[in-house]
Design a protein around this nucleic acid. Structure first.
Lengths: 238, 238
DNA sequence: TATTGTTATTAACAAATTGATAATAACAGG
DNA sequence: CCTGTTATTATCAATTTGTTAATAACAATA
């Protein structure tokens, strides 16, 4: 947006004398639900039952909710956009500078935080776990989250994020943000299955996804079974 | 959310002495993109080309952006949730207490407002125009919006809202919030057409929508042509 | 009363998309 | 060459769409 220009002396005066204190001020945090698919080791890489959808959590070191788990995030600083704030924590925890992110929802409960009125603008971030270098944070399986002591309303927040992720999987190409540049259709299918939590039929899956993919000409090798074609996402920059 | 309980004396102390001023405070507005379909008169009620998608706008009376058009909305007050703030403006401008609303997006540009840092949590509201009693606001046709001088980033905000509305029309039952209790399939189709901005084929439309509807047994009458069955939405409370 | 204009509703059929199962292909290792 | 395993294609039924045409029901009017 271009910089605002006052229309006249009077407005200039108005703005100069404006008292920001007349409206309640609210602290704002940006919290990130960072999703990754664990691919622990090379051997397990293609074994669906060894993989799972995970979220990145940090353990709080201060009050309130000391020692509880929470989403990575923090207060929006002076003159900082939400995206900037988000990228700051993202880089801090994962070492990644440009993971795909989108705004999820702004949580506004009056007593979310016992200190003061704090609203949380939450984001979903998707990344290829193998590119991330995690620091001061842990990957937690989705099913484990409900077993942990979670700070604030972050447990609910994660649940909402999962719903959104599952929904968007169906009608967007969002999944490719969690994939490496090149992958096989089976790998892609397993990512869908892990996120949706259900098995898909291979024949139908291939048919519908095929037109979004581009053959690299390469094949997997040394697998003890028929090798697989390797594809890349055909869509826009990813 | 239940009220937070400090875990120990130390935390109690911490909270008592907490200084909220250490983090930047941001003013928050809630702005509503209120959609309605104009059905100006009884005669035009079923004539598609006489109807259009409209948004409710107000003319600003103060600086900044004095005399510009803007979305109805305002600052979130002390201890007020976004929904409460929204309902306040909604009732104020339309007389309606419970129009369907959902959060759209939180706009966070640092210089959105020349007075100070103000973020806008925006909502989409859908209503049946015939139930609304508009006060201090005007219905503006969507195409006219771009011709008006709009305050802040509200022009962009409206564009985003329209995208969301069109998208959600396809995979949710959101449309019924703009319909009266009882309606004909042709009326429903015309609402889809107005929002999407394109004609739909009647046969296909009926087929796909039919299973969401329940026949009231009533018919339209006195129309000069074959009368129409009157339906209601079968889904959950609406 | 038969005809005309108009909108509603159903029918009918082709085209495209899905669901589901089976067949075939390609590899490593014995 | 046979076995176990995963990849990929083929096949066919079932379902859903796109499209056009037929039929129905009314008011007004000839």
């Amino acid at each position: 947006m271009e910089r605002y220009q006052p229309c006249c002396k009077e407005e200039e005066e108005f703005l100069r004398n404006y008292n920001p204190g007349q409206f309640p001020s609210i602290a704002v945090t940006v919290d990130a639900v960072i999703f990754g698919i664990s691919r622990d080791s090379a051997e397990n890489y293609r074994k669906l039952d060894k993989q799972s959808l995970k979220v990145l959590l940090v353990k709080r070191t201060d009050y309130p909710y000391k020692d509880y788990y929470s989403l990575p995030g923090g207060f929006v600083l002076e003159g900082e956009t939400f995206e900037e704030s988000l990228q700051r924590t993202l880089e801090n925890k994962t070492g990644l500078k440009n993971a795909y992110s989108e705004q999820l929802y702004t949580f506004d409960g009056v007593h979310r935080d016992p200190r003061m009125r704090v609203i949380s603008c939450s984001y979903i971030s998707l990344l290829d776990t193998r590119k991330a270098r995690i620091k001061d944070a842990v990957w937690v399986e989705l099913e484990e989250v409900s077993k942990l002591a979670m700070a604030f309303d972050h447990s609910f927040l994660i649940a909402e994020a999962v719903k959104r992720l599952r929904g968007k999987l169906q009608y967007t190409d969002i999944v490719f943000h969690m994939m490496p540049e090149e992958f096989t259709i089976s790998e892609l299918q397993s990512v869908y299955e892990i996120i949706l939590g259900e098995k898909l039929l291979a024949a139908a899956f291939r048919r519908t996804i095929a037109n979004k993919l581009e053959d690299t000409g390469k094949m997997t090798s040394n697998a003890g079974h028929r090798p697989s074609r390797i594809f890349r996402y055909k869509g826009r920059e990813c």
